[in-house]
């Protein structure tokens, strides 16, 4: 199609991409992302349809129900840009064809976006940033913000361009191998990192003392034998050797937590996660589970279990 009269330039397409960031702005219960979709298309539609009647038809065409992952809407927008451009240049593109492409793509693409972005990239980049931030490191939030937005903007632009160039052919690619492979790979990496995060960050410490056994003489620091003054502290710390040396007291106390840790570190957190998964599958609202955990935390603390 070299004889196109009206063509969308790179700047036009970039403008559409920028607008598409407001896709969910008027998210509503009736037609979900429809307002955002037409808002994203407006810079292109305005140029393609100088005639008021055509423009009105195009605007109404894109105000129908639409819902997918906000970033994965970009390839769909790319394809519809190509179709609208053909239509504006006189190609016999029916309304139904445009609707069909949108509806056909939004389902499978949402299925790709959720595991990749919400369940792999955000937890990983978020956990990376959060673990630095919890120590008061400003790099935590900065890294999170920069990494996320570089990935996101690159994704929005290149998938929209890909959709624009591929036209409706992209629908075949979606059901085909590549995207599915990316999704599967993301799920694998996501599950790996989740396993690690649960071990590291779900902290449950059982405080009940299981046993309290006396330690043989020489196994603990003999406080009376230490020199006087500040030197005593130095001596004690040397003997203690960060817990690797002598014991601080005459008794070795073993808490329930110590026993659990020698079996499987992080076991309690893992079991709690499985319990939450089970409750969620039983359609218990996550909000009630969260409130329940807080109540249990307070009660068990009062009863000296945690």
């Amino acid at each position: 199609m070299a004889d196109k009269k009206i063509k969308l330039t790179k700047a036009d397409r970039f403008n559409v991409m920028w607008h598409s960031q407001f896709l969910q702005g008027s998210w509503n219960y009736e037609r979900m992302q429809n307002g955002g979709y037409v808002y994203a298309m407006i810079p292109a539609l305005r140029k393609l349809y100088p005639n008021k009647k055509d423009l009105s038809a195009a605007l109404q065409r894109h105000l129908v129900f639409f819902n997918t992952h906000p970033y994965l809407a970009s390839p769909v927008i790319g394809v519809t840009l190509a179709l609208e451009e053909d239509k504006a240049n006189g190609a016999p593109v029916q309304n139904e064809a445009i609707q069909g492409v949108k509806v056909g793509m939004m389902g499978p693409l949402a299925g790709v976006g959720d595991p990749v972005f919400w369940y792999t990239v955000r937890p990983i980049v978020g956990a990376l940033g959060a673990s630095m931030a919890m120590q008061g490191n400003i790099l935590g939030p900065i890294l999170f913000f920069v990494i996320w937005n570089v990935i996101r903007l690159a994704f929005l632009w290149y998938t929209q361009e890909f959709g624009y160039r591929a036209g409706s052919a992209i629908t075949k690619d979606v059901s085909g191998g590549l995207l599915q492979k990316v999704t599967r790979g993301a799920s694998m990496m996501g599950m790996f990192v989740l396993g690690a995060l649960i071990e590291r960050w779900v902290t449950i410490k059982f405080t009940p003392v299981v046993s309290k056994t006396p330690i043989q003489k020489g196994g603990y620091i003999n406080w009376d034998a230490l020199p006087k003054g500040p030197r005593a502290i130095q001596q004690a710390l040397i003997q203690w050797d960060k817990g690797n040396g002598l014991s601080l007291t005459k008794f070795k106390t073993t808490t329930l937590q110590d026993n659990l840790d020698s079996l499987i570190p992080g076991l309690a957190g893992l079991l709690l996660t499985f319990l939450c998964m089970w409750l969620l599958k039983k359609k218990v609202s996550p909000i009630w589970i969260i409130i329940g955990i807080f109540v249990i935390g307070v009660l068990f603390h009062v009863w000296h279990i945690l």
């Binding site: 902290t203 709690l272 969260i290 955990i293 807080f294 935390g297 603390h301």
Partner: peptide
């Protein structure tokens, strides 16, 4: 304590 556990949800 609850806040440390609620991550699991």
């Amino acid at each position: 304590i609850g806040g440390a556990m609620v991550v699991a949800v």
